[in-house]
Computed example of a mutant assay.
Amino acid sequence: MDKLVAQFPKQIADAIEIASRSDLSFYKNKTFNNVVICGMGGSGIGGKMVSQLFADQSSLPIVLVQSYSVPSFVNEHSLVIGSSYSGNTEETLTAVKMANEKGATIVGVSSGGEMARFCKENHYDFIKLPGGNPPRSMLAFSAVQLINILAVAGIIDTNAIDTIAKCRHLLNDELITIKDEAKKLAKHLFKKQCMFYTDADLEFVAIRARQQINENSKRLCWHHVIPEMNHNELVGWAGGDNSFAAVFFISQFLTDRNIKRTELSQEIIGGKTENILSIHGRGKSLIEESFYFIHIIDWASLFLADMNEVDAVEVKVIDYLKGTLDKA
């Protein structure tokens, strides 16, 4: 897993190369009213990332589905993207097949499996990813393909991929800082009940942190966003103590009100635990900043796995669940 995390900047370049070679025709003579991205776990986080990062430039609503069905509004004017790294994710395949029955236009993104077969049989565009790795380690590949699909269709800026390309240079230039921040984060979380906070526009960063600590570090944790947490979870900190560790991913692009809300939230939480860590974003855009945060998170989850003396790759409980469902 260490090698895969280290390759994250290179994966961005490799993913862009795959996108550049993709011969897509799904958008021709089509009028779309909405976009639905279907994906779970390590594939789903790419959909969440894209739907949030490009919300301000998308000409259409982008909805992420993480269940067995698609919304009732899906019809012949919907673009549905099935993102499943293995190509065999039960929930995603079921949702995509439902979208097919509703007449939606479908694009598949996977390393093969049933998704590839389904797209071939139904003459849908399909983008093949390199296979054989844990889905959570392939975020760059899935996210870049989603961005390219939306850009090609003119739903987001057609130069969006160029913006993503800059992220690789940032991650390489900031590698020493990224690893230092990751080590601080892992140490901060060690033997603590951890929770992650971002502003609402970067919720996918907090979700990524939760998922990576769950899978790689084998620890329970949770996340919330500002300003929503100011209306509920902040009160829950009345029961907080030093067994809890809070982490704030602080964007350079916060609104003035959310800057103030973050400061006040930290002050209030600081009255219950001394374990508060702020990680400040770097980069010239929200997109660059988000990749910076994610690289810190991924490294931290591995450092914490070592501290917890667990195997970052192992996910036997998920394999057991899937195997049992297959027999049901």
Rank of each mutant, 00 (worst) to 15 (best):
N172Q: 14
T31H: 15
A305N: 04
C221L: 07
K284D: 15
N88P: 10
I296V: 13
K166M: 08
T92D: 13
L139A: 07
F118L: 11
N100R: 11
G283K: 01
A328R: 14
I12Q: 01
L325R: 10
K192Q: 03
F249H: 00
D180L: 13
I81T: 04
G236I: 10
V144G: 04
K97M: 15
N258A: 00
Q66R: 11
I318R: 01
Q252F: 02
A206I: 07
F54Y: 14
I156M: 03
M115N: 01
F293W: 13
K10Q: 14
V80R: 01
K316G: 14
T198Y: 12
V310E: 03
R261C: 01
G283S: 03
G271Q: 13
Y197C: 06
R136V: 08
L202C: 05
D56R: 07
R219A: 15
A153P: 14
A13S: 15
S22K: 08
S251F: 03
P227M: 02
K187D: 14
G46E: 08
N232R: 02
D56P: 02
L79H: 13
A143I: 04
I269V: 12
A19K: 02
E121F: 07
L53P: 07
L234P: 00
V152P: 06
G323N: 14
V152M: 08
G44M: 04
I318L: 14
A200T: 10
I279S: 09
T31S: 12
S51H: 00
A143V: 04
N230S: 02
A246L: 06
I226S: 00
